[in-house]
Structure formats: structure tokens, C-alpha cells
Design a binder for these strands. Structure first.
Lengths: 155, 155
DNA sequence: AAGAAATACTTCGATAATCAAAATATATGA
DNA sequence: TCATATATTTTGATTATCGAAGTATTTCTT
């Protein structure tokens, strides 16, 4: 019994340090593999903008800004850059001519899908070799974490 | 059987999207809760520098720079700032007077521990309510991911 | 329906992080 | 000793970001 407690303690330290390691490195690795890819003219932050715009529904500039925690003015310059590089399109809304609707160009959709593929590979490796039961525990863990972070956010 | 396959597919999508959600938000949440804390004069990047310096062994400026993927020149200015704010100390190595050894001040050690606490809470919530078996599956998952990222890095 | 207030975005001016290249100080090897 | 290598800093330029002011458009109030 005592031994088991020790084992759990050790496991916790291991999980904690692996978790920190993963968080500290994912961003940088995404950034680096983007630089080595065909799409080396955009940064990871640009990628997040593209991801927030996404494929299927028109979002306004301010919606996207809120999603990725940028001020409207920073959003304007970020979009300028992505428009100029051919990833994003600006259109004025017809119903409210103040708002700018954002959409991806063909090139934007290609890089969006590539990035989704990256995430998908990551998730596949995360789940590699799990039984159904194990997978459901992992699912619960990641859901826990998501809820915890949400809770902090709304504090 | 078919139904089960579908369930697994759905689970995968859920895990994937939760994983992405967590990655996209952790950094921002850490940043935000740092701003609200007693240590609102440092950014998350500063925190990562402090974390890389750590408590127990003297590291040189260039070692720390490599750990957090900064150029030496950027490291110099980053340290200047942290020295000026009272978190970090610079000392010249005695055996090689070119190298700068970095260490944390009392204040630096306090914020270092606070940040470790944050990670610990996160890991605790990640593991909340898991049995020993489930915990070991989760441990394996996070280890998988870590290895996967390492593999990409060395490509 | 005119004028006031609100909203969505952009422009402007300032600041901070970062980089690459040159400079400085020190150490190592021929 | 002198040339070369190494660790860090300084310099000059670029880029991301912000907040405040500006512009265009819509909505609200009376």
C-alpha cells in the first residue's frame, strides 16, 4: 500500500514534467516546422489567425481578434499582411458596411488543411496504442484540463 | 462493431479538438494570470527565462538562450531587464571570465516556485479522479506526445 | 427624420522584442 | 606569441503590438 502511494507520487512528477515539456515545446516546434515547409512566409501567429478565420463560416475581423486575443488595431495589420501574401480575403459585409468579413483564399485553405493535419498527427500519436478504455481515460484527462483552464479564465 | 468504430472516431475528433483548444489557450491563460498576480511586471517569456535558469545549478547565458530558443543578443537584453527588475543575478565565471553565470535572486526564486505551483495544479486537474490504471494510460499518452515532438525536432 | 451615441475598423505614434552583424574580452592551440 | 575560437554585448534595423484618435456606418432617441 505504501509502495503504491510512492509509485503514484512518482508518476505524478513524471506526468507533470512531461506536460511542462510538451507545453514549452509545441509552439516552438510548430513554428520551426512551418519555417521548413512550403509556407515559410508565415509565422505561427499568422497560422493561428488563419485557423481562427477557418473555412466554413464568415467571421468578422473583430470576432477573429477576440478569438486570438489581439486588439483590433493589431488585427488590421495582421490581416493586411496575410492579404498581401495571398492567404486571406477581406470583404465588406452587405448588411452592415462597417464590418469586414474574412475568408481564406485557395492558398489559405491549403495551409489551413496542412495545419489541421499537423494537429491530427499529434493527436494520433497522443493516442497511439490505447485500448478503448484507456482512450476514454485520456479523453477525460484532456477534458479536465480544458475545463480547468476555462474556470481560471472566467475567474 | 460498426457502431463502436464510429464511437472511436468521434472520440478522436473530440480529443483532437480539446487538445488544440488546450494548446491554443494555455499560454494565453498563463500570461493573463501572471498579469493579475503580484508579479505583473514580468511576461510569460520572462517566466520561461526564469524557469530555464531554475534554482539548482548555475547555467550560462548561452545555455539558457539555447533552452528557450533565443539568440545570444536577445538573451542579453532579456537578462538586462530581469536583472533590473530584481529577479536574476549575473556573475562572471571564475574559471572562464568570458562566461556569464545566471542565478535567481530571492524574488526570482519566489516567482519560480509560484510558477511551478501553477503547473502542478494544472497536472493535478489533468489527473483528477483517475484510477491507477487510468493514470498510467494518461502518463503513456503524454509520454507518446513528448516523444513524437522530439522526433520531429531531430528530423 | 435629424442629431447623438454606438460600433467596426483603420491610421498614427510609441514601445518592446527580436535578429544579424560588428565589437569586445577572454581563452586555446599551433 | 599570434591566430583563431568562444561568450557575451552593442548596434542598427525590423516587426509585432498597443492605445488613442480618426473615419465611416448604423442605431437609438426624441
Amino acid at each position: 500500500m505504501k509502495k503504491m502511494t510512492e509509485a503514484i507520487t512518482t508518476d505524478f512528477e513524471k506526468i507533470n514534467s512531461d506536460l511542462v515539456d510538451v507545453f514549452n515545446n509545441v509552439m516552438w516546434i510548430e513554428e520551426a516546422s512551418l519555417k521548413r515547409s512550403y509556407f515559410s512566409d508565415i509565422t505561427l501567429k499568422d497560422m493561428h489567425t488563419i485557423d481562427a478565420i477557418s473555412m466554413y463560416d464568415e467571421k468578422s475581423a473583430s470576432q477573429v481578434a477576440r478569438m486570438i486575443h489581439l486588439t483590433p488595431s493589431a488585427m488590421t495589420t495582421a490581416i493586411d499582411k496575410l492579404v498581401q501574401k495571398g492567404y486571406v480575403e477581406r470583404r465588406r459585409s452587405r448588411t452592415d458596411r462597417r464590418v469586414v468579413k474574412l475568408g481564406l483564399t485557395h492558398k489559405g485553405r491549403v495551409v489551413y488543411r496542412a495545419h489541421q493535419g499537423f494537429h491530427r498527427d499529434m493527436a494520433h500519436n497522443f493516442m497511439a496504442g490505447m485500448t478503448t478504455e484507456e482512450a476514454s481515460a485520456v479523453q477525460r484527462a484532456i477534458h479536465n484540463l480544458k475545463s480547468y483552464l476555462r474556470a481560471i479564465l472566467s475567474k
